[in-house]
Protein backbone atom coordinates (compact mmCIF):
# COMPACT_ATOMS: atom_id res chain seq x y z
CA UNK A 1 0.00 0.00 0.00
CA UNK A 2 2.75 2.41 0.99
CA UNK A 3 4.62 1.43 -2.14
CA UNK A 4 1.73 2.32 -4.40
CA UNK A 5 0.52 5.40 -2.63
CA UNK A 6 3.72 7.05 -1.56
CA UNK A 7 6.82 5.74 -3.27
CA UNK A 8 5.50 5.26 -6.79
CA UNK A 9 4.24 8.85 -7.20
CA UNK A 10 7.48 10.30 -5.83
CA UNK A 11 9.47 8.02 -8.09
CA UNK A 12 7.44 8.94 -11.17
CA UNK A 13 7.68 12.68 -10.51
CA UNK A 14 11.43 12.66 -9.91
CA UNK A 15 12.21 10.42 -12.86
CA UNK A 16 10.06 12.56 -15.14
CA UNK A 17 11.78 15.71 -14.04
CA UNK A 18 15.32 14.39 -14.32
CA UNK A 19 14.82 12.56 -17.61
CA UNK A 20 12.79 15.50 -18.84
CA UNK A 21 15.60 17.89 -17.97
CA UNK A 22 17.96 15.75 -20.05
CA UNK A 23 15.51 15.85 -22.95
CA UNK A 24 15.14 19.63 -22.64
CA UNK A 25 18.91 20.01 -22.66
CA UNK A 26 19.20 17.81 -25.72
CA UNK A 27 16.39 19.52 -27.64
CA UNK A 28 17.60 22.96 -26.65
CA UNK A 29 21.13 22.45 -27.90
CA UNK A 30 20.08 20.43 -30.93
CA UNK A 31 17.60 23.04 -32.14
CA UNK A 32 20.10 25.79 -31.45
CA UNK A 33 22.82 23.99 -33.41
CA UNK A 34 20.41 23.36 -36.28
CA UNK A 35 19.47 27.02 -36.29
CA UNK A 36 23.14 27.88 -36.52
CA UNK A 37 23.57 25.36 -39.36
CA UNK A 38 26.27 23.43 -37.53
CA UNK A 39 27.28 19.91 -38.56
CA UNK A 40 24.22 17.71 -38.46
CA UNK A 41 25.87 14.64 -37.00
CA UNK A 42 27.33 16.44 -34.05
CA UNK A 43 24.30 18.55 -33.23
CA UNK A 44 21.99 15.54 -33.17
CA UNK A 45 24.32 13.37 -31.10
CA UNK A 46 22.08 11.82 -28.42
CA UNK A 47 24.98 11.56 -25.96
CA UNK A 48 25.71 15.30 -26.00
CA UNK A 49 23.82 16.03 -22.74
CA UNK A 50 26.05 13.47 -21.01
CA UNK A 51 29.17 15.24 -22.29
CA UNK A 52 27.90 18.53 -20.94
CA UNK A 53 27.12 16.83 -17.64
CA UNK A 54 30.68 15.55 -17.53
CA UNK A 55 32.09 18.97 -18.27
CA UNK A 56 30.03 20.60 -15.54
CA UNK A 57 31.08 17.97 -13.02
CA UNK A 58 34.76 18.23 -13.83
CA UNK A 59 34.81 22.00 -13.37
CA UNK A 60 35.40 23.73 -10.09
CA UNK A 61 32.38 25.25 -8.43
CA UNK A 62 33.41 28.83 -7.67
CA UNK A 63 32.07 30.76 -4.70
CA UNK A 64 31.73 34.52 -4.80
CA UNK A 65 33.12 36.71 -2.06
CA UNK A 66 31.11 36.42 1.14
CA UNK A 67 27.84 35.09 -0.24
CA UNK A 68 24.77 34.10 1.74
CA UNK A 69 25.84 30.49 1.62
CA UNK A 70 22.68 28.90 2.93
CA UNK A 71 20.41 30.56 0.40
CA UNK A 72 22.92 30.14 -2.41
CA UNK A 73 22.94 26.39 -1.84
CA UNK A 74 19.25 26.15 -1.07
CA UNK A 75 17.82 28.16 -3.98
CA UNK A 76 18.44 25.61 -6.77
CA UNK A 77 17.15 22.79 -4.60
CA UNK A 78 14.02 24.77 -3.77
CA UNK A 79 13.45 25.66 -7.43
CA UNK A 80 13.64 21.96 -8.27
CA UNK A 81 11.34 21.12 -5.36
CA UNK A 82 8.80 23.62 -6.65
CA UNK A 83 8.92 22.00 -10.08
CA UNK A 84 8.31 18.64 -8.40
CA UNK A 85 5.42 20.09 -6.40
CA UNK A 86 3.86 21.48 -9.56
CA UNK A 87 4.25 18.23 -11.46
CA UNK A 88 2.85 16.21 -8.56
CA UNK A 89 -0.69 17.51 -9.04
CA UNK A 90 -0.77 16.60 -12.73
CA UNK A 91 -2.94 13.51 -13.38
CA UNK A 92 -1.36 10.82 -15.58
CA UNK A 93 -4.51 8.82 -16.09
CA UNK A 94 -7.95 8.47 -14.53
CA UNK A 95 -6.57 6.63 -11.53
CA UNK A 96 -2.92 7.58 -11.29
CA UNK A 97 -2.49 11.04 -9.82
CA UNK A 98 0.64 11.52 -7.66
CA UNK A 99 -1.10 14.09 -5.40
CA UNK A 100 -4.77 14.55 -6.05
CA UNK A 101 -5.25 17.83 -4.22
CA UNK A 102 -8.72 19.41 -4.31
CA UNK A 103 -7.09 22.77 -4.88
CA UNK A 104 -4.50 21.66 -7.41
CA UNK A 105 -4.86 24.82 -9.47
CA UNK A 106 -4.27 27.05 -6.47
CA UNK A 107 -1.21 25.03 -5.59
CA UNK A 108 0.16 25.58 -9.10
CA UNK A 109 -0.44 29.30 -8.64
CA UNK A 110 1.53 29.13 -5.39
CA UNK A 111 4.34 27.31 -7.20
CA UNK A 112 4.55 30.09 -9.77
CA UNK A 113 4.79 32.80 -7.13
CA UNK A 114 7.18 30.92 -4.88
CA UNK A 115 9.40 30.35 -7.91
CA UNK A 116 9.77 34.12 -8.12
CA UNK A 117 10.96 34.17 -4.54
CA UNK A 118 13.45 31.39 -5.16
CA UNK A 119 14.84 32.98 -8.32
CA UNK A 120 15.26 36.23 -6.46
CA UNK A 121 17.06 34.45 -3.63
CA UNK A 122 19.42 32.78 -6.05
CA UNK A 123 20.52 36.09 -7.54
CA UNK A 124 20.52 38.01 -4.29
CA UNK A 125 22.52 35.56 -2.24
CA UNK A 126 25.50 35.55 -4.60
CA UNK A 127 26.51 39.01 -3.35
CA UNK A 128 27.60 40.20 -6.77
CA UNK A 129 26.11 42.97 -8.83
CA UNK A 130 25.17 41.20 -12.04
CA UNK A 131 23.21 38.39 -10.37
CA UNK A 132 21.61 40.98 -8.11
CA UNK A 133 20.50 43.09 -11.06
CA UNK A 134 19.09 40.03 -12.79
CA UNK A 135 17.17 39.07 -9.67
CA UNK A 136 15.67 42.51 -9.15
CA UNK A 137 14.72 42.87 -12.75
CA UNK A 138 13.08 39.48 -12.71
CA UNK A 139 11.01 40.17 -9.64
CA UNK A 140 9.87 43.61 -10.67
CA UNK A 141 8.68 42.23 -13.99
CA UNK A 142 7.56 38.85 -12.74
CA UNK A 143 4.84 40.26 -10.55
CA UNK A 144 3.18 41.78 -13.61
CA UNK A 145 2.44 38.50 -15.33
CA UNK A 146 1.42 36.58 -12.21
CA UNK A 147 -2.01 38.21 -12.45
CA UNK A 148 -2.40 36.99 -16.02
CA UNK A 149 -1.67 33.48 -14.85
CA UNK A 150 -4.33 33.67 -12.13
CA UNK A 151 -7.06 34.84 -14.51
CA UNK A 152 -6.21 32.28 -17.15
CA UNK A 153 -6.26 29.46 -14.61
CA UNK A 154 -9.58 30.60 -13.13
CA UNK A 155 -10.97 30.59 -16.66
CA UNK A 156 -9.92 26.97 -17.01
CA UNK A 157 -11.45 26.02 -13.69
CA UNK A 158 -14.85 27.45 -14.66
CA UNK A 159 -16.03 24.79 -17.11
CA UNK A 160 -14.74 22.09 -14.74
CA UNK A 161 -16.53 23.69 -11.78
CA UNK A 162 -13.59 22.58 -9.70
CA UNK A 163 -10.05 23.52 -8.78
CA UNK A 164 -9.02 19.88 -9.00
CA UNK A 165 -6.91 19.03 -12.02
CA UNK A 166 -8.52 15.63 -12.59
CA UNK A 167 -11.86 17.43 -12.92
CA UNK A 168 -10.30 19.92 -15.32
CA UNK A 169 -9.13 17.04 -17.51
CA UNK A 170 -12.57 15.41 -17.35
CA UNK A 171 -14.20 18.66 -18.43
CA UNK A 172 -12.21 18.51 -21.66
CA UNK A 173 -13.61 15.16 -22.75
CA UNK A 174 -15.73 16.77 -25.45
CA UNK A 175 -13.65 19.73 -26.42
CA UNK A 176 -10.19 20.78 -25.30
CA UNK A 177 -9.75 24.04 -23.51
CA UNK A 178 -7.35 25.24 -26.17
CA UNK A 179 -10.34 25.42 -28.53
CA UNK A 180 -12.92 26.40 -25.95
CA UNK A 181 -10.86 29.35 -24.71
CA UNK A 182 -8.63 30.23 -27.64
CA UNK A 183 -6.76 32.98 -25.80
CA UNK A 184 -5.91 30.83 -22.79
CA UNK A 185 -2.99 28.79 -24.08
CA UNK A 186 -1.06 31.68 -25.68
CA UNK A 187 -1.38 33.71 -22.50
CA UNK A 188 -0.40 30.74 -20.38
CA UNK A 189 2.64 30.10 -22.58
CA UNK A 190 3.79 33.66 -21.92
CA UNK A 191 3.45 32.97 -18.20
CA UNK A 192 5.53 29.84 -18.72
CA UNK A 193 8.26 31.79 -20.46
CA UNK A 194 8.35 34.13 -17.50
CA UNK A 195 8.28 31.35 -14.92
CA UNK A 196 11.33 29.69 -16.43
CA UNK A 197 12.85 33.02 -17.56
CA UNK A 198 13.12 31.57 -21.00
CA UNK A 199 13.63 33.19 -24.40
CA UNK A 200 11.89 36.54 -24.87
CA UNK A 201 11.18 36.86 -21.16
CA UNK A 202 14.65 35.91 -20.01
CA UNK A 203 15.05 38.87 -17.70
CA UNK A 204 16.89 37.10 -14.92
CA UNK A 205 19.75 35.77 -17.01
CA UNK A 206 19.67 37.89 -20.13
CA UNK A 207 22.70 38.33 -22.40
CA UNK A 208 23.06 42.02 -21.56
CA UNK A 209 23.73 41.11 -17.92
CA UNK A 210 26.31 38.48 -18.79
CA UNK A 211 23.76 35.80 -17.92
CA UNK A 212 22.53 37.65 -14.82
CA UNK A 213 21.85 35.32 -11.93
CA UNK A 214 23.98 32.60 -13.51
CA UNK A 215 26.88 34.97 -14.13
CA UNK A 216 28.84 33.82 -11.10
CA UNK A 217 27.87 30.18 -11.05
CA UNK A 218 30.20 27.53 -12.35
CA UNK A 219 30.66 23.80 -12.37
CA UNK A 220 28.33 21.75 -10.23
CA UNK A 221 26.40 24.64 -8.73
CA UNK A 222 25.55 25.93 -12.20
CA UNK A 223 24.59 22.42 -13.22
CA UNK A 224 22.09 22.12 -10.37
CA UNK A 225 20.54 25.47 -11.24
CA UNK A 226 20.27 24.49 -14.91
CA UNK A 227 18.74 21.17 -13.94
CA UNK A 228 16.15 22.92 -11.80
CA UNK A 229 15.32 25.37 -14.57
CA UNK A 230 14.90 22.62 -17.13
CA UNK A 231 12.80 20.68 -14.62
CA UNK A 232 10.56 23.71 -14.24
CA UNK A 233 10.17 23.83 -18.03
CA UNK A 234 9.13 20.19 -17.96
CA UNK A 235 6.66 20.73 -15.11
CA UNK A 236 5.18 23.72 -16.89
CA UNK A 237 4.79 21.78 -20.15
CA UNK A 238 2.93 19.02 -18.33
CA UNK A 239 0.70 21.54 -16.63
CA UNK A 240 -0.08 23.36 -19.88
CA UNK A 241 -0.80 20.05 -21.62
CA UNK A 242 -3.13 19.08 -18.79
CA UNK A 243 -5.17 22.23 -18.52
CA UNK A 244 -5.35 23.16 -22.21
CA UNK A 245 -4.65 20.08 -24.33
CA UNK A 246 -6.83 17.56 -22.55
CA UNK A 247 -4.13 15.96 -20.44
CA UNK A 248 -4.13 12.20 -20.66
CA UNK A 249 -7.31 12.06 -22.78
CA UNK A 250 -6.91 10.64 -26.26
CA UNK A 251 -7.80 7.64 -28.39
CA UNK A 252 -5.74 4.51 -29.16
CA UNK A 253 -2.72 5.21 -27.01
CA UNK A 254 -2.55 4.83 -23.22
CA UNK A 255 -3.21 7.99 -21.19
CA UNK A 256 0.28 8.68 -19.82
CA UNK A 257 1.75 8.43 -23.31
CA UNK A 258 -0.71 11.02 -24.59
CA UNK A 259 0.24 13.30 -21.75
CA UNK A 260 3.96 12.99 -22.52
CA UNK A 261 3.34 13.62 -26.24
CA UNK A 262 1.31 16.75 -25.56
CA UNK A 263 3.83 18.02 -23.02
CA UNK A 264 6.60 17.53 -25.57
CA UNK A 265 4.64 19.60 -28.05
CA UNK A 266 4.34 22.46 -25.56
CA UNK A 267 8.03 22.12 -24.77
CA UNK A 268 8.97 22.38 -28.44
CA UNK A 269 6.89 25.54 -28.82
CA UNK A 270 8.66 27.08 -25.83
CA UNK A 271 12.08 26.11 -27.16
CA UNK A 272 11.25 27.51 -30.58
CA UNK A 273 10.28 30.82 -29.02
CA UNK A 274 13.51 30.79 -27.05
CA UNK A 275 15.63 30.58 -30.18
CA UNK A 276 13.62 32.81 -32.46
CA UNK A 277 12.31 35.72 -30.48
CA UNK A 278 14.52 38.51 -29.15
CA UNK A 279 14.66 39.19 -25.42
CA UNK A 280 12.16 41.95 -24.71
CA UNK A 281 13.38 45.17 -23.17
CA UNK A 282 12.07 45.47 -19.60
CA UNK A 283 10.41 48.80 -20.30
CA UNK A 284 8.44 47.50 -23.27
CA UNK A 285 7.46 44.33 -21.47
CA UNK A 286 5.96 46.25 -18.56
CA UNK A 287 3.72 48.16 -20.94
CA UNK A 288 2.79 45.05 -22.86
CA UNK A 289 2.04 43.12 -19.68
CA UNK A 290 -0.25 45.73 -18.18
CA UNK A 291 -1.78 47.28 -21.27
CA UNK A 292 -2.20 44.23 -23.45
CA UNK A 293 -1.84 40.94 -21.58
CA UNK A 294 -3.83 41.83 -18.50
CA UNK A 295 -6.92 43.10 -20.37
CA UNK A 296 -6.66 40.09 -22.68
CA UNK A 297 -6.73 37.80 -19.69
CA UNK A 298 -9.84 39.64 -18.44
CA UNK A 299 -11.46 39.04 -21.79
CA UNK A 300 -10.43 35.41 -21.61
CA UNK A 301 -12.01 35.08 -18.18
CA UNK A 302 -15.25 36.79 -19.24
CA UNK A 303 -15.36 34.60 -22.32
CA UNK A 304 -14.92 31.49 -20.17
CA UNK A 305 -17.57 32.71 -17.73
CA UNK A 306 -20.07 33.44 -20.48
CA UNK A 307 -19.51 30.01 -22.02
CA UNK A 308 -19.92 28.35 -18.64
CA UNK A 309 -23.23 30.14 -18.03
CA UNK A 310 -24.46 29.41 -21.51
Amino acid sequence: MILNELLLPIFVVLITLILGAGVVDYLHHATSALGKQMSLRRSLNPLAPLYRLGLALSQQSVITEHPDRLNLRLAPALYFALAALGLAVVPWSADFIPADLVTGMVLWGAVEVLATVVIFLCGWSANAHLPLLGAYRYVSLGLSYMLVSMFVLIGVALPAESLQLSAVVESQREIWNVLRQPMGLPLFLIVGLGLTFWGPLDFASSPDLDRGISADQSGASRLVWQLARYAMLVAFSFMAATVFLGGWLGPWLPGPLWLVLKATLVLLILLWMGHNLPVMTPDKFISVAWVLLLPLSFVDLIWAGALALW
Partner: peptide, 10 residues
Protein backbone atom coordinates in the same frame (compact mmCIF):
# COMPACT_ATOMS: atom_id res chain seq x y z
CA UNK B 1 -3.83 26.67 3.18
CA UNK B 2 -2.88 26.81 -0.49
CA UNK B 3 -4.20 30.34 -0.93
CA UNK B 4 -2.04 31.42 1.98
CA UNK B 5 1.00 30.07 0.12
CA UNK B 6 0.64 32.28 -2.88
CA UNK B 7 -0.82 35.30 -1.11
CA UNK B 8 2.09 35.45 1.26
CA UNK B 9 4.70 34.66 -1.36
CA UNK B 10 3.63 37.70 -3.38
Amino acid sequence: GTALFFMMAV
